[in-house]
Lab assay of single mutants.
Amino acid sequence: QEELVKAFKALLKEEKFSSQGEIVAALQEQGFDNINQSKVSRMLTKFGAVRTRNAKMEMVYCLPAELGV
């Protein structure tokens, strides 16, 4: 569980995922086979993730800066 949270936060820091499906796929690539869209959705809510525009003006998920991840 701890490893999943770390990987999840690291992915969001990249600010390149525009959908929950993309986050699920990226986590599965890292070996988290039991991850699915509903789990990702709950984690996004739990950590207060928001959708914002990145440098390329794409809408992407990211974590609020005050979490200091």
Rank of each mutant, 00 (worst) to 15 (best):
Q1H: 13
Q1E: 15
Q1A: 13
Q1R: 11
Q1K: 11
Q1L: 12
E2N: 11
E2H: 12
E2D: 13
E2F: 12
E2V: 13
E3Q: 12
E3P: 09
E3N: 12
E3T: 11
E3A: 14
V5I: 13
V5K: 08
V5A: 10
V5S: 09
K6I: 11
K6S: 10
K6A: 13
K6G: 06
K6H: 10
K6F: 09
A7Q: 06
A7V: 09
F8V: 06
K9D: 03
K9Y: 14
K9C: 13
A10V: 07
A10L: 11
L11V: 05
L11A: 04
L11P: 00
L11F: 05
L12H: 00
L12P: 00
L12Y: 01
L12Q: 00
L12K: 00
K13A: 12
K13Q: 11
E14Q: 14
E14K: 07
E14W: 07
E14M: 15
E14H: 06
E15I: 05
E15Q: 10
E15P: 09
E15T: 05
K16M: 07
K16Y: 04
K16R: 15
K16V: 07
F17W: 07
F17L: 06
F17H: 07
F17M: 11
S18T: 14
S18E: 06
S18M: 09
S19R: 09
S19I: 05
S19Q: 07
S19L: 06
Q20H: 09
Q20A: 14
G21T: 11
G21N: 13
G21A: 14
G21M: 15
E22K: 08
E22V: 04
E22S: 10
I23K: 00
I23C: 02
I23A: 01
V24D: 01
V24K: 04
A25P: 00
A25G: 06
A25T: 11
A25K: 13
A26D: 02
A26N: 05
L27T: 00
L27V: 01
L27C: 01
L27N: 00
E29H: 10
E29C: 06
E29N: 10
G31E: 02
G31P: 00
G31Q: 02
F32N: 01
F32P: 00
F32I: 03
F32V: 01
D33S: 14
N34H: 11
N34I: 05
N34S: 12
I35M: 09
I35V: 12
I35D: 01
I35L: 07
N36E: 06
N36H: 06
N36W: 04
N36G: 07
N36F: 04
Q37I: 13
Q37S: 10
Q37E: 14
Q37P: 10
Q37T: 12
Q37N: 09
Q37W: 07
Q37G: 09
S38P: 09
S38F: 12
S38D: 15
K39H: 15
K39P: 01
K39C: 10
K39Q: 15
K39E: 14
V40Y: 00
V40C: 01
S41F: 07
S41Q: 13
S41C: 04
R42W: 13
R42I: 13
M43F: 05
M43A: 01
T45A: 12
T45M: 11
T45N: 11
T45Y: 10
T45Q: 12
K46E: 15
K46N: 11
F47Q: 04
F47N: 04
F47A: 07
F47Y: 12
G48L: 04
A49K: 02
A49D: 02
V50R: 09
V50Y: 10
V50N: 05
V50E: 06
V50C: 14
V50W: 04
V50F: 09
R51H: 08
R51G: 04
R51Q: 10
T52I: 15
T52Y: 09
T52A: 13
T52W: 05
R53C: 07
R53K: 10
R53F: 09
R53L: 15
N54Y: 02
A55I: 08
K56E: 10
K56N: 13
K56F: 10
M57N: 15
M57G: 15
E58I: 08
E58Y: 04
M59N: 05
M59C: 03
V60F: 04
V60E: 02
V60S: 03
V60M: 03
Y61D: 01
Y61H: 02
Y61M: 02
C62Y: 08
C62D: 03
C62I: 13
C62R: 06
C62Q: 09
C62V: 14
L63Y: 04
L63E: 03
L63D: 03
P64N: 04
P64D: 04
A65P: 15
A65S: 14
A65W: 09
A65Q: 12
E66L: 06
E66Q: 10
E66G: 09
E66R: 06
L67G: 13
L67F: 07
L67A: 14
G68D: 14
G68F: 03
G68V: 11
V69A: 12
V69F: 06
V69R: 09
